[in-house]
Amino acid sequence: MSGGHAAVAVYRPRGTVLHRLPAECKIVAVFGYVVTVVLTPITAGWAFAAHALVVIALGVLGRVAPGPAARRMLIELPFLAFAVALPFVAAGERTELFGVVTVSRDGLLQAFGLVARATLGVALVVVLAATTPARELLTGLDRLRMPAVIVAVMSFMLRYSTLIVDQMHRMAIARAARGHRPRTLASARTLAMALGSLFIRSYERGERVHLAMLSRGYTGSLPVGLPREPASRAHWAAATAAVAVGAAIAAAAGVARGLG
């Protein structure tokens, strides 16, 4: 039943420092670090190299598997496409690129900033996902006072996405078993029908889940989960230290720009 699960998750259970850090600390650290990356002026290329080193160091510290992490980062691609277009469409002073095309110097810089910031942000989130089980992320968000309804919706997604993906796989196998070969555009119709029935089934399951919840006395608010130990000061100190490194790099880059 959990066949589709392994392919989806980037998380690897290991006992590193990053794994032991409570999820709420990691979430705050990642968010804080991303802010420092955004605040770093794009003219300071060396600062982004420094940020990249920090992220790689974190990845090594958390023993993140490079292959799955790289595949996970492909989610960034649509944003990169936009970045590639930027130098061609942006206004401003033109400059020659590789002696072949003329592009906007400003656009080129903006594109670099976009790519660098997006890549660093995604990489940080991948490190977070690789060192934190999904359900602990939810606990962390709950601790950080994320509205309970949103945590509940995410929790349902987490619980049922694997089931739906499994069901989708089984339906695909059943179609293939009857000689269906999805090659042509015409097979899009078949796929659409399959997705439609999957939607109906999921909707019906939702109703059954709700009935089962009502049967156990659900009245509209999810109760707090089982008690767990809160994060210690040392944990928060570690999270703050990571953000401080990012802030130092951003500040140094800012000062350098001011001087230059």
């Binding site: 939810l138 929790s155 987490l158 619980r159 089931l163 399951r205 889940v209 089962a212």
Partner: peptide, 11 residues
């Protein structure tokens, strides 16, 4: 309920 996946919804 018949399908435990309908009943078990928490992580």
């Amino acid at each position: 309920f018949q399908d435990p996946d309908d009943q078990l919804f928490m992580p």
